[in-house]
Simulated scan of single mutants.
Amino acid sequence: MQMKQKKVLLYSGSLKLVEKSGVGQAVRHQQQALSIAGVPFTMDSKEDYSIVHLNTIFPDSVLKSKRAKRKGKKVVYYAHSTMEDFRNSFRGSNVIAPLFKKWITYCYNSGDLIITPTDYSKELLEGYGLKRPIISLSNGIDTDFFKWNNEARRRFRDKYNIPDEEKVVISVGHYIERKGILDFVKLAKRMPNYQFYWFGYTNLNLIPQRVKEAIKQSLPNLHFPGYVTREEIRDAYCGSDLFLFLTHEETEGIVLLEALAAKIPVLVRDIPIYKHTFKDRETVYKGTTTEQFEELTSQILEGQLPDLTENGYQLALERDIKVIAQRLLAIYEQG
């Protein structure tokens, strides 16, 4: 896939359905990466193109893949989803998870090349028996945009009327069990001396009753501002004292990279995807039980543990969008 004057189509069909998710963020990162690498691209299917990027697993994307191949175009399928991270998401997701696995396998096999964000998700997909080459490449992070600054911290604290001395814990994601929202709420109840903010939103009709009940609890230190802009999320990182990411399963977790880029302490659940990349007590802190999360949260907020934020920032720099742009260009040129 030589890139000399060849144009990439970032297919935008059904993109509005996922624009507020990590997939939508990944597409924005692809636009940025292609611009940095000097690769011409379009979002308009009516324009001529040589390569199409597909990011969703809706039927229209599969149709686009098949039509593109019939016309001699190359198809790059971004594998953002696995059966494993589909489980424990929406109502009924566990029941249909095996069918979901068959469907995404069909989708990904329709392309010429599969790109997935991490070695962990690559390993999972290889176990699906996919027939196409799989390459792991981070979705990337704009470290310049998410860099900590005091003005952003002030905006966040002013907006939510948070005194300077108040300790704030945040998380970002959909209202789904897989993201660890139940444990987040449990910790807020157990730690009334700290403020807990969960950014993100999911239609309440799509989530199980236990999650609805959790987010409807009336706790004075628990807040659900809903979906906010990218700028407001950046301000929230800068204005908080801990990013608490209790997700049970991810293919990458862009929000984790954003928090590291903002140089705030990070506490994550100790899950396989982060086993090698994010070393416990080197770049992030890790826990597995509610009791551990409570203890570590308190120790981090009270300054009783070493500050790892510079190490985390260096790791984010390795996944900076400018680095990803060059790796993406190299993938094209090798193809």
Rank of each mutant, 00 (worst) to 15 (best):
R155M: 14
Y194K: 14
N55F: 11
G13N: 10
G226S: 08
R157M: 05
R153L: 09
Q30W: 07
K212A: 10
T116Y: 03
N109Y: 07
D60Y: 07
F86P: 06
S21R: 02
G287M: 06
I57N: 06
E249F: 04
R281D: 15
L54N: 01
I104A: 06
L17R: 11
E310A: 12
R190N: 14
K216F: 13
K6N: 10
A330V: 07
S14G: 08
V52W: 00
T143E: 08
I273Q: 12
G140A: 03
L9C: 00
W198I: 03
L244Y: 03
E310M: 09
E249Q: 08
S93K: 10
R155N: 13
V185P: 00
Y197M: 04
L328I: 06
F224I: 05
V75D: 02
E47M: 14
D320Y: 02
F41E: 13
Q32S: 13
L54H: 02
Q2D: 14
P192W: 03
D44L: 07
P98G: 12
Q217L: 12
R157Y: 02
I264F: 05
R70G: 01
Y78S: 07
L256E: 10
N139C: 13
Y49A: 08
F146V: 13
S93G: 08
L267M: 10
L206H: 11
N109H: 06
Q292N: 00
S121L: 02
D112L: 07
V185E: 03
K102H: 11
W148R: 14
G173H: 10
V23I: 15
S240K: 02
R67Y: 06
I51F: 04
N203Q: 09
D60F: 09
V76H: 05
S12Q: 14
I271R: 07
E302A: 11
E302M: 08
S50Y: 05
L187R: 03
Y11G: 00
Y77S: 06
L244I: 03
A97D: 14
R190K: 15
E231R: 12
R269C: 11
R28E: 12
F86N: 05
P163R: 03
H29G: 13
I233H: 01
E177F: 05
